[in-house]
């Protein structure tokens, strides 16, 4: 399974990087979203995936072994929310940029660098 997940992660990164290098604003945002998915899956995978039970302590009894690692899950949760916030902002930025520049072509956006 590790091999498969590793390939999936690689695939997600490749897709993300490819989309980010496009000239369209929207594609760029999709690339960012893919990148964030790839990273979340990476954290999840490298911390030792197991087909363990969820890290929930049943009522009134101690938790036996075979639980999946709770820490990376917490990290991913934090990262998910953060990247959602940033994605929302990025979308607003896309919207306003497109409106102000009048195109979504990144090649047209070099007036500040000439």
């Amino acid at each position: 399974m590790i091999y498969l997940l590793a390939v999936v992660i690689g695939g997600l990164y490749s897709a993300g990087f490819y989309m980010m290098a496009r000239r369209s604003l929207l594609k760029l945002v999709i690339g960012l979203a893919l990148l964030s998915h790839a990273t979340n899956l990476l954290i999840f995978t490298v911390s030792g995936v197991s087909r363990g039970r969820p890290p929930l302590i049943p009522d009134g009894q101690a938790l036996a072994g075979g639980v999946s690692d709770p820490l990376p899950q917490a990290l991913i949760l934090t990262a998910l929310v953060i990247s959602f916030g940033i994605l929302a902002f990025a979308l607003a930025l896309v919207l306003r940029t497109n409106e102000s520049v009048g195109t979504d072509d990144l090649d047209e956006m070099r007036t500040t660098e000439q």
Partner: peptide, 15 residues
């Protein structure tokens, strides 16, 4: 090509 290379690096790193 560049993206696939970059992606593969991550595969290798994960493994």
């Amino acid at each position: 090509i560049v993206s696939v290379i970059a992606g593969s690096l991550f595969t290798v790193l994960v493994l």
